[in-house]
Amino acid sequence: MSMTVEIDEPRCVAAGHCAAAAPGVFDQRDDDGVVVLLDPTPPAGEHGKVREAAALCPAAAITLRDRGGAR
C-alpha cells in the first residue's frame, strides 16, 4: 500500500512532533519551525512513524492518503 502525505502549512504550529517522530519524512524550517515535507510518498518502512506524526500533530496539519485517495 502506498501512502501520500499532505501538509497544511498555514495550520502548522511548529510543535515539532512530526520532525521528532519521523525525521526522514518531516523537517522544520530553521527560521520559524514550520513543517517541511521531505518525502510526500514515504516508503512502507516509514508508514508507522508517519502515522504517529499525524496523530500527534496538535494542529491536524498532516493528512495521509492511500493510493486510492481515501484517508
Binding site: 498555514p10 504550529v13 511548529a14 515539532g16 525525521p23 524550517r29 520559524d32 519551525g33 514550520v34
Partner: peptide, 17 residues
C-alpha cells in the same frame, strides 16, 4: 497568534533543541 508565534518558534525546533 500565528504571526507572533512564528517569530519565536524557530528557537524551539527539534533541530535547535
Amino acid at each position: 497568534h500565528s504571526r507572533l508565534r512564528r517569530m519565536l518558534s524557530g528557537g524551539f525546533t527539534v533541530k535547535r533543541v
